[in-house]
Nucleic acid binder design. Structure first.
Lengths: 222, 222
DNA sequence: CGCGGCATCCGTAAAAGTACGGATGCCCCA
DNA sequence: TGGGGCATCCGTACTTTTACGGATGCCGCG
């Protein structure tokens, strides 16, 4: 076994489910080069602990109650700039992968990836690399080729900020009228956004949009 | 340590997330009286293994892709009648708790309960008892008092089988017309069910119904 | 500067959903 | 056997959503 004495990876574990934390701890128990220095069960706690501990790597569950994972990631970056953020989630979500990697996450692994992959990811990001689970990297690559050679094609999308807002509202069960009031634009404008969203996502029902928004973490289930 | 030699609890672990299975294994590693004799990552596999192993207890994740947890529970009962089913899930869902306990589950624990509670639950159901996490038992009790002294009040509900079907379809993004075709009833009937559902649940938007259905596990996110 | 993307606005029409009001037959159970 | 709950059906009216067609002004980028 090669392990350079003082290079233990200091890991902060953020997940609202104890059993998941246990799973990670178990997978990491035999890895002598990884040291779980803290745990948090929600975003606020995570930020506090990150500030105090400034861990090497933060394994961050994306689907948590209250503070959304994206929000947490944003704040964690400033709370502990040197920590590498490794996103950890249940669902394969294109938008999520893209957004969180734009927010500076160094990797993305799924809860149904093998524990060994999670370990690999932790080691990779700690060494300054990146690690995206195949399903996640697929999205990154697609986005990348699109961004580089952006002639024609174009059939790809990305919702605007306002469209995300509207989508969030739709999935929360608001009507166009209510959304208009909330966002302080005309109801007709909301309708237009609605149509654009459906076009871009190619989803034509509220139920579908709602499920999409939940997958994306735009709204919580509770 | 008291442990009567031959009374190890033979446990079958059913969860689609490796990390969760690891978590359970870790929590159970020190418990010498529990023996994980098998694992499954989906309903079909679970049924196969249950048949072969006929474990004492089946720890069953409810929110799994493909075969719904309820469906799996139903089939597990006949696949391995002697196994005690312990439901294991993320979300606090009244309807789910009630339905799965009606299906014969002997307990209900959440993924954010402490691992120690999960262990307690396993031991309890194995001894022929029941174990419902406080949040789950709350629903059971409420239902119980309602069932016993059923004078007045009545404001409580329970969707009919058909209504559940309609709800599932709605949340899947089907229109009333499509649902009618699928369930082979008139579109107008579907509308009526729709209204009854909304009344009973006091949810008046498709988005709300969709979120409810996802919480209940009637539809999956994918 | 021009061009493309975005946010904002508008009209119209058809489709779908929501909200009332009713009805019938079935089956279980007191 | 009678009442209650359920599934099924119906009409009518209103609201909302979906889909199509447009428009303007702003801003960044080559």
């Amino acid at each position: 076994m090669k392990d350079r004495a003082h290079s233990k990876i200091r890991l902060l574990l953020v997940d609202d489910h104890p059993v998941v934390r246990e799973g990670i701890k178990f997978s990491l128990a035999k890895k002598r080069n990884i040291d779980i220095v803290g745990e948090a069960s929600d975003g606020k706690q995570a930020i506090r602990k990150a500030k105090k501990l400034s861990p090497d790597v933060i394994l961050l569950d994306i689907n948590m109650p209250r503070v959304s994972g994206l929000e947490a990631a944003r704040r964690l970056r400033s709370a502990s700039p040197k920590s590498k953020i490794l996103a950890f989630t249940m669902h394969d979500s294109k938008e999520y992968v893209l957004r969180i990697s734009r927010l500076g996450a160094k990797g993305y692994v799924f809860k149904d990836d093998s524990p060994a992959d999670v370990v690999r990811a932790i080691e990779a990001v700690h060494k300054g690399g990146v690690y995206f689970s195949p399903r996640a990297s697929k999205h990154i690559l697609k986005e990348y080729v699109r961004a580089t050679m952006n002639t024609e094609d174009s059939t790809i999308l990305g919702l605007s900020q306002q469209e995300y807002e509207v989508l969030r509202c739709i999935a929360s069960g608001l009507s166009s009228k209510e959304i208009a009031a909330q966002l302080k634009v005309s109801a007709r404008t909301v309708d237009t956004h609605r149509e654009h969203i459906m076009e871009k996502l190619d989803i034509r029902t509220v139920a579908g949009l709602t499920r999409y928004a939940i997958r994306e973490g735009l709204v919580t289930l509770e």
